[in-house]
Design a protein around this nucleic acid. Structure first.
Length: 292
DNA sequence: CGCCAGGGGCCGT
DNA sequence: ACGGCCCATGGC
């Protein structure tokens, strides 16, 4: 069995779900909370090492998910998702730390991925720990407690702009939360809790639930997924050409709910495949670019 | 419900 | 150089 059929590291890391990772000399280094994980892709097994503590890559890359079952469950729905599953075979949804995920996606509002990385690197450099690994220097992601004394100005200095106040409040909200209830709660319960955090809206809540809180049915809709829905699933969602132009909060709820019902309990995987498909093949009519 | 700000970097012109 | 736009959200 070829490991690449089960997991494609580069495709997974480059699919917009995680921001703090680096490719150096054929190896991948991923910042997971206060640890750095090194992955060396091989055809037989995932060779890995982490510092300063052990991190389970089986957990991190959700190797407990049965991709055969999942890919059939979503891939058999229609030709488009079938094609996306085929082309991006090995794409996994990662199991991130909820706190890092929360802060990451608050930073990821209304900006580009490269800038999100700059913001998070700033936070790591200022509030995280320095870790030497293979002669390389990394700064790990701070714990909630390490970030709780950060001022809005500190965060602005990290390049967060107006997001600084949202992040500051989110740190304190998170410290007041029972993380276990976030993991155990239903999709609707957890979404409502997350939406109570200032700076967390529908899309960010869905990302946090899918990428860190075990809610594989969550179907985040960003601009790329919205283009996919507008072009291929417009009738399924039941909207006319005019409604497809802009994504209102109400339409987000409706579209996300319908896509969740359509793809089922693994809708989040479908979303991730469609995101990769859109970014690779769909043309942006508004800006006349592929926007890669 | 619709419009607008908020920041900084990147992209096309 | 320069304006428009971003893996959205909250406020009005």
């Amino acid at each position: 069995m070829n490991l690449m059929d089960v997991i494609n590291i580069e495709c997974t890391l480059d699919s917009g779900q995680v921001f703090l990772w680096y490719k150096r000399g054929g190896s991948y280094y991923i910042i997971c909370s206060e640890n750095v994980v090194r992955i060396e892709p091989s055809y037989e097994q995932l060779v890995h090492e982490s510092k300063p503590r052990y991190v389970s890559v089986e957990r991190l890359f959700r190797l407990d998910d049965d991709t055969h079952v999942i890919n059939h469950s979503i891939g058999d729905k229609d030709a488009l998702i079938g094609e996306a599953v085929k082309r991006f075979k090995g794409l996994r949804i990662m199991r991130q730390d909820p706190f890092q995920c929360l802060i990451s996606f608050i930073c990821a509002t209304n900006t580009r991925i490269v800038r999100v990385r700059h913001m998070l690197e700033g936070i790591c450099k200022r509030f995280g720990n320095k870790v030497e690994f293979d002669g390389l220097t990394f700064h790990t992601f701070p714990s909630p407690k390490a970030l709780q004394d950060a001022s809005i100005n500190d965060l602005v200095d990290c390049g967060l702009g107006y997001r600084a106040r949202f992040v500051k409040y989110a740190v304190h909200s998170y410290l007041d939360m029972d993380v276990k209830s976030l993991l155990d709660g239903s999709y609707d319960e957890v979404r409502d809790i997350l939406l109570s955090i200032d700076g967390v809206g529908n899309k960010v809540a869905d990302c946090i639930m899918l990428f860190s809180l075990e809610k594989l049915e969550a179907f985040p809709i960003d601009v790329w997924i919205w283009r996919v829905i507008a072009k291929y699933y417009r009738h399924l969602v039941g909207m006319d050409m005019d409604e497809a132009r802009k994504l209102s909060p109400n339409m987000y709820r409706r579209a996300s709910s319908i896509m969740r019902g359509y793809f089922g309990r693994y809708a989040g995987y479908a979303q991730q495949y469609l995101y990769c498909y859109a970014r690779a093949y769909m043309y942006d009519d508004d800006t006349n670019t592929y926007n890669k």
